[in-house]
Simulated assay, not measured.
Amino acid sequence: MHDFPVEPTADILSFYTVYMCHHIKPTSVASYLSGIQNELEPVYPNIRSICRSALVRKTLLGCKRLLKSEPTRRIPLELPHLEALVQSLGQSPSYDHLLFLAQITSGFYGLNRLGELVWPDNRKLQSYANVSMRHSVDLIIDQYSYHLPGHKSDRSFEGNRIVIQAVNATHNPVLLFKKYLQARDSLFPGRPELWLKADGSIPQRRWFIDLLHHFLPDGISGHSLRAGGALALALAGVPPDRIQDAGRWT
């Protein structure tokens, strides 16, 4: 169709890369090139070196930069969202709703990743090495803290202490946490885990996300807790380096 020679060269594969990147996602073109290598290697033994040539690699890299898809940005959780949640669930008799309120406010004010509050849905990825324990809780009048055993930026594997202070609002995280802790200790006095559902299991990601989507607008995700908490600190005038330390960003 394009009157190109049949024998593959770096120029031919470079043209092919540009052509395909305008019809499919550039990230998929690398798989196509891999398939070409497997199919043509018996006939053209040097096809792998051609595909790995600087021209082909840089062409693909340039196409990825020029034609990349726009990222899907999630809405940060905001204070009105927390207020609305407390109005909806604050008087609920459900223990799990109380757990959800305590976790979402802890995640917001403690700049927690969702994976630091709940277990993955995949059982193979669930580990007690990442579970906060009840005995690590330090509770005083206007603040509470608990030990975060590990997270992905914890290079020393020492964990961090999450400290959350009271705020003058209906979604005061200290009051919600105390209320949850009282209910949790009444139901599970002998269990070591800090976060427990009414059935005695550790909350999982799907459970949390389902409640999040049920009570909050579309676009709110698990990352919205951490992003919203950081945004709230920035709007309050907290210096960026303090926010970085609080969020355990390296």
Rank of each mutant, 00 (worst) to 15 (best):
A230F: 04
I243R: 05
N46W: 14
D199W: 12
V18Q: 13
R248S: 02
V238P: 02
D11R: 12
W207F: 05
V238A: 06
E70L: 12
L33P: 08
T59L: 06
S224W: 02
G200V: 08
Y146A: 01
S127W: 07
Y19G: 00
L33H: 06
G90M: 07
R205I: 00
D11I: 02
D96F: 05
L99M: 04
G62V: 03
G229R: 02
V56F: 02
L98A: 08
W119V: 01
Y128M: 09
R74Q: 13
L66D: 07
K124A: 09
L211G: 03
A227K: 14
A198I: 10
A198L: 14
I36F: 12
V118E: 03
P192M: 10
L67W: 04
H81R: 04
R226G: 03
P189M: 05
P149N: 13
S136C: 09
V163H: 11
G115H: 12
T17D: 13
Q37Y: 05
F188E: 04
H214Y: 13
V18S: 12
G237K: 07
L194M: 11
L61R: 07
D210R: 15
G222L: 08
L114K: 06
V43F: 14
A129H: 13
P76F: 03
V163F: 10
Y32A: 10
L82H: 05
L233C: 12
V29I: 10
T59Y: 10
G90L: 06
K25Q: 01
D96R: 08
H135M: 01
Y95G: 01
L111Q: 05
E7V: 13
A54N: 15
P76A: 01
S28G: 08
L194V: 05
R226N: 07
R48M: 03
S14R: 05
H147A: 00
I104G: 03
I36V: 13
A234C: 10
Y19K: 04
T27F: 12
D218V: 07
A183F: 09
L216Q: 02
F100K: 06
W195D: 02
K68V: 00
W195Y: 08
G107W: 02
N168C: 10
A236L: 11
P192W: 10
D185R: 15
P203W: 10
K152D: 14
D96Y: 06
Q103I: 09
E7K: 15
L67V: 00
L33Q: 08
